[in-house]
Design a protein around this nucleic acid. Structure first.
Lengths: 191, 191
DNA sequence: CGGATCGTTGATCAACTTCAACGGTCGTGG
DNA sequence: CCACGACCGTTGAAGTTGATCAACGATCCG
């Protein structure tokens, strides 16, 4: 199953199978059940997670007790609170499995050791973060450009299979609107 | 003036003055006047920019002709449309100097050559992008968590000097509210 | 001085939220 | 295998935030 991670890395840089066998020892493989929470707000966020299969959700809880989703991570995506991970500080976020999932987790200490030992991987992570940051620039544009209705249709248009995969209230919490309003929008478009 | 860039790099990785002299040859130094536009929507976005002094703004223009600001870059910040730069595609954004500015610009081709020749710099860029991405996670949280009024006060609370530095309508365009509403908020808090 | 640029004010209006209640479905325990 | 409760989506009414529009004032700069 870790083969998937090897294939992902080799999409961006060249590494040998032998090196990968050493690289993988820096990670923990974890089997998560739906609803397992792996990071809690106010705690340290010492790990970065790579999803082999399943789906993770990063969210926070606001004053009114509502969950707001910052991002999802499916197969081949990384997930962590980047600043908390980088600064070794506490996080405001929860990270939860919303499907049964297999993930690879690396601690900040191990990541440092890993990058010292395999500096090639700096390039891999540079590209990962560059793409991630670029994606949020586009997301920001959409947030500013679109009405809530357009945000919703834009999303299900671009990611129809993922929209199927998660419950509607989670999608609403990610897109920044209420489940009730999603209902209304869907209803409107049906007629 | 490029010394500032040298100092920025050495905050994150160790390099020698001699290497830096070679590194800097991959960049163009540009002197920009206020209102100079260096990237236009629908064009290629082949450059990544580092601000030595002054301030850049990245924005797009929506259907109604209104400018919405994606981000600002002041001293020691990088700015580009990451995905367009990385994929060598066209951008939806404009990049404009909003003060007289000095910047270092590197083309995508030169960046590739630079990183091949000085792989050490992969680490530098990895950290830059990691921090940038982390910052947008927090920004996303604030966007979802706060009312427009809270977004405004949170910003001028965190970056009072920068809020002074730019006109109010640009700040409004960055925070995602109308200049009129900023007026209203400020007025309310005054009484 | 004159025009462009930026901030302000107030009225009107639409988008979206909130709240409360209901109905369907799925999974679990008896 | 059925019944019950939890969970999720839906509906509608009422309320609010914040946008839009138009007009006016102030300031800056050539």
């Amino acid at each position: 199953m870790t083969k998937r991670f090897f294939e992902h890395i080799t999409k961006f840089i060249e590494i040998e199978e032998g090196d990968f066998q050493k690289i993988i020892t820096f990670f923990d493989i974890k089997q998560l059940n739906k609803k397992d929470i792996i990071t809690e707000a106010t705690n340290k966020c010492n790990f970065n997670h790579f999803v082999l299969n399943g789906c993770l959700q990063m969210y926070f809880i606001n004053d009114k007790g509502a969950e707001r989703t910052i991002q999802f991570a499916i197969e081949d995506w990384w997930m962590t609170d980047c600043l908390a991970f980088h600064n070794e500080g506490t996080t405001d976020f929860y990270i939860q499995a919303i499907e049964n999932s297999q993930i690879l987790s690396i601690s900040i200490d191990n990541q440092k050791k890993l990058l010292d030992q395999f500096p090639k991987l700096e390039k891999y992570f540079r590209i990962i973060y560059q793409i991630s940051f670029g994606a949020t620039q586009i997301r920001m544009k959409n947030l500013y450009d679109f009405s809530k209705e357009e945000i919703y249709f834009d999303f299900i248009d671009k990611y129809p299979e993922f929209a199927q995969r998660i419950p509607q209230y989670l999608l609403a919490s990610y897109l920044g609107l209420t489940p009730e309003y999603v209902s209304e929008i869907r209803n409107k478009s049906r007629s």
